[in-house]
Simulated assay, not measured.
Amino acid sequence: MRFVLASASPARLAVLRAAGIDPDVRVSGVDEDAIAAALTDPAPAELVTALALAKAEAVLAGLRAEDEPGEAVVVGCDSMLSLHGEVVGKPGEPEIAAKRWRGMAGSTGELLTGHAVVRLRDGEVVARAQGHRGTAVRFAEPSEEELAAYIGSGEPLGVAGGFTLDGLGGWFVEGVDGDPSSVIGISLPLTRNLLSEVGLRVTDLWR
């Protein structure tokens, strides 16, 4: 059974490896903005789940084109931060990251993670499952000097919400209420439940 991670995220890869799975990494290359635009006023949970499914399906198409016999399971993920009624993804630019952090400091946000699991057997889809998980994140209040140094590191620009729990951003997170692995990028409890829905035991996938 091939375990295929439809994500380029090194954090998701690290979580899975630490948890006993060494996945085959495939990058989906989906246009997230186009997918979001195609949805009619989606709830945050609906949006991250739809994006996760789109990533899994895009990678699935590539696997089917390879026409390799056997079984595979594809896992797609997406994360966004919900804060003060606004849902945000990756800042991309230092100015955006700085503005967001000034709004996040001293507040509590909800990190939403959507997952999709697709099971493939001999080129045919035999089962699908999808779901989401929300985890409360309590942010510290970094000084202007600390914030400038963090943004200058480049780390927050390419991650959901503009922060990490397992990197430099961990210094500025007071705590989480819920699943820490979900905040890092892939929820182990949710992934285990979805794998079960498609007929797989996570213990059978351990290397």
Rank of each mutant, 00 (worst) to 15 (best):
E86K: 14
A38I: 05
L81E: 07
G92N: 11
P44C: 02
V73P: 06
D41E: 15
A54E: 14
L39W: 12
G70Y: 10
T49G: 04
D31Q: 10
E66A: 14
A34N: 08
A38Q: 11
S79K: 06
E66R: 15
R64D: 07
S79V: 02
A72T: 01
D78K: 04
P69S: 04
A54D: 07
G70V: 06
A72V: 00
L53E: 15
V73L: 02
E46Q: 15
T49V: 13
T40H: 12
V59E: 07
D33C: 06
K55P: 01
S79C: 10
E68P: 02
A65Y: 03
G92W: 11
L81F: 04
D67F: 02
K55Y: 08
E46N: 05
L39S: 09
A72F: 05
G85D: 12
D41A: 14
L83Q: 10
G76P: 01
L47C: 04
V74D: 01
S79Y: 00
A61E: 15
A65K: 11
G92L: 12
A52P: 09
L63D: 03
A56I: 04
T49P: 08
D31S: 11
S79G: 08
K55W: 06
H84R: 15
P69R: 05
K55H: 05
E68F: 02
A54R: 14
G89P: 05
D67H: 14
E32C: 06
D33G: 12
L51Y: 11
G85S: 10
K55M: 07
K90R: 14
A43V: 10
L81V: 09
K55L: 03
A58F: 03
V48R: 01
P44M: 01
A38H: 07
A56D: 01
A38W: 09
E32P: 11
A54Y: 12
L39K: 12
E46H: 09
P91Y: 09
V74K: 00
L47D: 01
A56E: 02
R64E: 15
L39P: 06
L81A: 13
A61L: 13
M80L: 12
G62V: 05
I35P: 14
E46V: 13
A52G: 14
G76I: 10
G76Y: 06
L60D: 00
E86I: 06
V87K: 07
L60R: 03
A36N: 09
A72R: 02
D31K: 08
K90C: 04
A56N: 00
P44W: 03
S79R: 07
C77D: 02
A54F: 11
R64T: 08
S82W: 09
A65S: 13
R64P: 10
A38T: 08
C77T: 11
K90G: 04
L63G: 02
A65C: 02
L63Q: 03
D31H: 11
E86V: 13
M80R: 13
E66W: 07
D31M: 06
K90W: 03
G76V: 09
V48C: 08
A45Y: 00
V73S: 03
A56Q: 00
K55Q: 05
E68L: 13
L47H: 08
P91Q: 12
K90T: 00
K90P: 01
L51Q: 03
A50T: 15
K55D: 01
A34T: 13
